[in-house]
């Protein structure tokens, strides 16, 4: 085999004559084309992932539904402050790690840094989805323990004309719990699919380089 690879080496160096040849202008045109590198995709998708949950939180009816009911108010404000502090921390961390990615690194470091930036977004998503689920749950429990909370929900008075208080309470409790769960699972599912697809090849290559160290 040694000889065969040497044979290949000689032939490989001869092969240069058959390679395509691009002109100065062709290359010059290329340098202004848009990159479609995986790093760019990760940046775009990560920005989307960071902003989408924010849009949901800023969605007028979602916010007013929560903030209008005085029972939830103090808890909601505390939760919001906590949430935004963590979000800002995540954005900072992602930005820092994204900036560290350099094509001039060795292959292993480059892959490690890309995976690390991507993981930051993964943790952010886990955090955001847990928060989203908690808000649904917080609401569901609020309804269960407090009549005032129950009455503050829009449309409840109309429901109460047809159904008893107990029935309405139960129905709304399940609506909030189950839709919370459904939204979390669906969004989580979409996310993990995207995360997996983007990084599958990269992770495989990274593992290959890493396992040599053991």
């Amino acid at each position: 085999m040694m000889d065969e690879l040497e044979l290949l080496k000689k032939d490989w160096q001869k092969k240069e004559e058959h390679l395509p040849k691009l002109s100065y202008d062709e290359i010059h045109k290329m340098i202004w084309k848009k990159s479609s590198s995986i790093v760019k995709w990760i940046l775009i998708i990560s920005i989307l992932e960071i902003t989408l949950p924010q849009l949901l939180f800023l969605f007028p009816s979602f916010r007013s539904a929560i903030s209008d009911s005085s029972t939830f108010n103090s808890g909601y404000i505390a939760l919001s402050v906590f949430y935004y502090i963590v979000v800002i921390y995540f954005i900072y961390l992602f930005y820092k790690r994204y900036k560290e990615i350099s094509v001039l690194d060795d292959a292993k470091n480059l892959m490690r840094k890309i995976i690390s930036a991507r993981k930051t977004v993964l943790y952010y998503i886990i955090f955001s989805l847990s928060m989203l689920f908690l808000i649904f749950l917080y609401y569901a429990i609020g309804i269960y323990i407090s009549d005032e909370a129950l009455m503050s929900i829009e449309g409840v008075d109309r429901l109460l004309e047809k159904k008893s208080l107990e029935e309405t309470r139960n129905a709304l409790f399940w609506v909030f719990s189950l839709s919370g769960l459904a939204v979390t699972v669906v969004m989580g599912g979409i996310y993990f699919l995207l995360y997996g697809l983007l990084l599958r090849k990269l992770k495989r290559n990274y593992q290959e380089l890493k396992k040599m160290e053991v």
């Binding site: 590198s37 995986i38 790093v39 995709w41 094509v103 060795d106 290559n205």
Partner: peptide
């Protein structure tokens, strides 16, 4: 020499 690194990194990691 510098090109080898960038070219291989792009082929292995960056290129979709």
């Amino acid at each position: 020499t510098w090109m080898y690194r960038v070219a291989l990194n792009t082929a292995i990691t960056m290129y979709r």
